[in-house]
Design a protein around this nucleic acid. Structure first.
Length: 409
RNA sequence: GUGAGUGUAGCUCAGUUGGUUAGAGCGCCAGACUGUGGCUCUGGAAGUCGGGGGUUCAAAUCCCCUCACUCACCCCA
């Protein structure tokens, strides 16, 4: 037997109906904010990610699906969506379009990691980006969009974390301040954090090793190191969130794993997911497009993990997703099979969903199948019904049944 | 990449100190019931016991290797 590749999986009905519904809600919400869908290739030149995400990140170091094509070019299955969007922006001269430019994407991403709960090698992200504005109003709009979407899925118990990682003006100063303290306490840190002192000291803030926690308490908060522009930016975002009544927590230890973030970073976590509890991460990336050789255009965006989102989707939302047909028509004998098809076609023309029992094996099997597949009603069609232009309508939940004229359905 | 746990029917699992033909529930199929699903009863199909090797008269059971899955670490969606 041939199995799926490690960390990949099949999504089957009726579960796929839930996926479709979540995607449909995402599109509705994004469209209502004026965002248009962008579809970028699943594979890109490897260089896009090494330059865009950063050489020293875990994603680039150990998590990419990279392989040579037949001409020896190095290709990589996209591990995230923002760098491809930035590339597409440059490739298509999108700076000539009206700005701010609002884009969204839905699709699979790939990372070569050991699978666990909420983590797959092929996983799906729903993301949005706004390109152009430097103003914090764009950040606030992103939150508004995100929260609107999550509310439509009927989430009530998610926590939003917010921080600023500064900009090219103030981050180096903070970085140096961190390094100074970390050097003093080098002996108390885990091996990873010792390495991070040089490579990425901000990441120590995120370390979960028990031994590192006391040192973390000694580390300065970035708040005191932000330049005037960055702290004003952050203040505006906070005010905006308050005005929108979006509950959030300022978390000065929040750092993201991608190098391209500047200023605003945020994440949404759930308590119901196990260790991999982040369902959404995002932030501002003012230098990404220019770093990739494009114009100096800032941007901000987020990515939601669709697999994780669906894992914790509220029952109240899931209950409304109905995979079953409106009508399942059961011919009593093979003589009624063709009239059943005609009736089904007529119902579909009216916008209802309808199916027909194909095996001609009678009511018993037909009704059993109808109920098992979640149809709302069964329509029983026999010799007598056809003679009178009627059908028996049976509600499969309650068992009640009534005769109705076919025209009155 | 590291660690731990688990692999027996489609699913959930039982299987005694190694012992004869590997079981149950659910599901599936058929029948009781040739115009009525869910309840009940009867019957049926379905297993390379993850795979390979070893020990033994005898292995689902013990040993070694391997693969897969799960959870956790790292990190992230």
């Amino acid at each position: 037997m041939i199995a799926t590749v490690k960390g990949t999986r099949d999504i089957l009905p009726p579960e796929s109906f839930v996926w479709n519904r979540v995607e449909a809600v995402a599109r509705e919400v994004f469209h209502s904010f004026g965002y248009g869908e962008i579809r970028t290739p699943l594979m890109e030149p490897t260089e896009l990610f090494t330059r865009g995400i950063g050489e020293d990140t875990d994603i680039v170091n150990k998590e990419m699906y990279t392989f040579p094509d037949k001409k020896g070019r190095s290709l990589t299955l996209r591990p995230e969506g923002t760098a491809p969007v930035a590339r597409a922006y440059i490739s298509n001269n999108m700076q000539t379009l009206p700005h701010p430019l609002r884009l969204y994407y839905i699709g699979p991403m790939f990372r070569y990691e050991r699978p666990q709960k909420g983590r797959y090698r092929q996983f799906f992200q729903i993301g949005a980006e706004i390109l152009g504005p430097e103003e914090p109003a764009a950040d606030v709009e992103m939150f508004s969009l995100l929260v609107d979407f999550l509310n439509r899925l009927e989430f009530t118990d998610l926590a939003v974390g917010l921080n600023s990682v500064g900009c090219e003006a103030c981050r180096p100063g903070y970085r140096a301040a961190l390094q100074a303290v970390l050097q003093e306490h080098k002996g108390e840190l885990c091996v990873d954090c010792v390495r991070r002192i040089d490579t990425n000291p901000l990441r120590v803030l995120d370390c979960k090793e028990a031994g590192c926690q006391p040192v973390k308490k000694l580390l300065p908060s970035i708040g005191g190191h932000l330049c005037e522009t960055c702290s004003a930016h952050l203040r505006f975002v906070e005010e905006g969130l308050n005005a929108l009544k979006i509950r959030f927590e300022l978390n000065d230890r929040l750092v993201r794993g991608l190098d391209y973030y500047t200023r605003t970073v945020f994440e949404v976590v759930s308590g119901r997911l196990g260790a991999q509890n982040a369902i959404c991460g995002g932030g501002r990336y003012d230098r990404l497009i220019s770093d990739l050789g494009g114009p100096k255009v800032p941007g901000i965006g987020f990515a939601i993990g669709q697999d994780r989102l669906i894992e914790i989707l509220p029952e109240s939302f899931k209950a409304k997703v109905k995979p079953g047909l409106d009508y399942f028509i059961v011919p009593v004998s093979p003589n009624e099979l063709l009239p059943a098809f005609e009736l089904a076609a007529k119902l579909r023309e009216q916008g209802r969903s309808a199916g027909v029992a194909l095996d001609g094996k009678g009511l018993k099997k037909g009704l059993k199948f109808a109920a098992a597949t979640g149809a709302v009603s069964a329509l029983i069609l026999g010799e007598e019904e056809i003679k009178n232009g009627e059908v028996v309508v049976k509600n499969l939940a309650t068992g009640e049944q009534v005769k109705k004229k076919i025209d009155e359905l």
